[in-house]
Design a protein around this nucleic acid. Structure first.
Lengths: 242, 242
DNA sequence: CGGGCCCTTGACCTGTGTCAACAAACGTGG
DNA sequence: CCACGTTTGTTGACACAGGTCAAGGGCCCG
């Protein structure tokens, strides 16, 4: 079970000291993050601490239904957004990577819509809601960035439906592999638990397992380490649109 | 075939005269629309014509790939957002109803991400991109509304995945019917072509047809007119979470 | 009245879910 | 560091939901 609530018990979030505006300004990933377009003067508007928080694999950034008090910029790692279904099952509706923003709904004063769980060791910046609100009231640059973030979320959600939840199981797995490969250069890609794969693709754990196993037998995937695979992009692309 | 491109040929969009700011101010559905929170002074910022455009059933508001020059507020009717798949098939990723906004991606200078097609006679207001841009640069009220629109899109996309693309076909149809019923009071709901139903649920036309037919035989649905059905909400709710 | 179009239904077959067993990997505590 | 229990991945057998292909019927429109 990769249930976030349980995970919180065993895992532990590591909270770093407040870095403050100087750090934000010089942040290594700022150009891809929420604060990308901000100018020096804008940072003076930050009046609340922005914490750097790391999450162990399996721990939750936040849970569905929690009051949304902050957004999170993903500095590195991988986060799944989980929706729990009426029947108790779960469905992963999106993945967030370095540069992505989690919990935008907090900016509207809403509760979080999903549970966000780290799939790998993940580094984040926790930005209090009020900080973003104040910035976006005072600079159109923040405003534009927010629109882009929202648009990206919608686009990813749509792609998730059309690419990962459509077609037969083999094609879905192929598309997922291709999606994982891009965004981490090279021909390699890192997989995760079969249960999570199933929850992303809308198939059972067994089906996910069977297909990965078959891909390995046919040489489309070659294990090069702990859940790390080398993949035959050619073959996958062919399978992806079938 | 309910292909938007063909539809444009037979259908015809009816363009009304420009109503201008006075009309917007007094618009009957403004409180639910994009301009909901605007104040009187804000309307002075509108410097381009906002056309009222009606679309016949089957005609397209815009096509995927078109340069996004405007957003559309749906005044009444029903619009499907269609994504075309690699294999030539199509998938409906969302439905827009009165008060919803279509084509928000235009505000970022992007091409339209989908093809938007009227499922019923639909009345819209076409708002040029520059109008919204200028408004949102000058009033935080526009800004807040836009955020809400984006959030709503994401939420709907996620719900589409978890409710309409998960579980067995019967449950999906049941959830679709419940979704159609809400938002048009009463126990009634209006269906559309089986092909469209299939494209929404990720099943074939035949499966959609079979299930609707079965629901009619078992009395869960009762036809009360041209594609209009009375539905047993109890039974549907039971089927929906199975 | 004739031609399409869409809905419905049947027969058949394949893909996936389900249930169950086992193996491998992992973590934990002695 | 090893032994044990737990979790996770793999595989098989089987059943069934849904896809596919094909035919027929109703309805609207020209």
């Amino acid at each position: 079970m990769s249930d976030g609530r349980e995970s919180l018990v065993r895992g532990k979030a590591i909270e770093a000291a407040w870095r403050g505006q100087a750090e934000c300004l010089g942040c290594g990933i700022r150009e891809t993050a929420l604060f990308a377009d901000l100018r020096e003067q804008d940072f003076a508007l930050i009046h609340l601490p922005i914490d750097e928080i790391d999450f162990e694999v399996g721990t939750a950034l936040y849970h569905v239904g929690d009051p949304g008090q902050a957004v999170y910029t993903i500095r590195s790692g991988l986060v799944k957004l989980v929706s729990y279904l009426a029947d108790g099952g779960q469905r992963i509706v999106r993945l967030l990577r370095a540069g992505d923003t989690a919990g935008l709904e907090a900016l509207l004063g809403l509760e979080y819509e999903h549970t966000a769980i780290a799939l790998r060791q993940t580094a984040t910046c926790r930005i209090p809601r009020e900080v973003v609100t104040r910035l976006s009231e005072n600079t159109p640059r923040m405003h534009a960035q927010l629109m882009q973030r929202w648009q990206r979320s919608v686009q990813q959600a749509d792609a998730w439906l059309t690419r990962l939840s459509t077609g037969n199981a083999k094609a879905r797995v192929a598309r997922l592999l291709l999606l994982l490969r891009e965004g981490q250069g090279g021909e390699q890609c890192m997989l995760f638990g079969r249960e999570d794969m199933g929850a992303m693709l809308g198939v059972t754990t067994e089906t996910a397992s069977r297909i990965v196993a078959e891909f390995r037998r046919t040489g489309i995937l070659t294990e090069v380490g702990q859940n790390r695979y080398d993949c035959d992009v050619e073959a996958l692309t062919r399978l992806a649109d079938s």
